[in-house]
């Protein structure tokens, strides 16, 4: 089995951070006000914001999937018989999602 270095765990956390940040960005887009636009524009503005909230959420979901994928890799590795070395304990701390 291929060695899984500690940096895989670090990357999984960074993907989780991206997920959080993109969810925040999605909320920001969805929460942007359209009251200031004229009636001729506000409808298009609302549709745009709704659609882009989804786009940002999708990116966030994709980021979370990357984090989850790396955690599966770590889980498989630390559970295997071939895993060894001083990083093993530290690596196992990344198996669970921190946030």
């Amino acid at each position: 089995m291929e060695v899984v270095p500690l940096s895989v765990g670090v990357a999984s956390q960074r993907w989780d951070d991206q997920h959080l940040d993109l969810d925040a960005a999605a909320g920001q887009v969805g929460g942007a006000g359209t009251d200031g636009f004229t009636r001729a524009v506000s409808g298009a503005a609302s549709r745009f914001l709704t659609q882009w909230q989804r786009h940002a959420e999708t990116l966030g979901t994709d980021s979370e999937a990357r984090a989850d994928g790396l955690r599966v890799v770590i889980q498989d590795y630390v559970s295997s018989d071939e895993a060894a070395g001083i990083d093993l304990f530290l690596l196992s701390t990344y198996v669970t999602e921190q946030r």
């Binding site: 940040d21 993109l22 920001q28 942007a32 359209t34 200031g36």
Partner: peptide, 28 residues
Amino acid sequence: LTCQPGAVRDCGGDLLAASAQIDDLGTF
């Protein structure tokens, strides 16, 4: 003419900040 330029500008600011966040993902 019923509109609020300040509120429109705030909306643009929210979109700009969100685009910066998405840009961060690309950089990452």
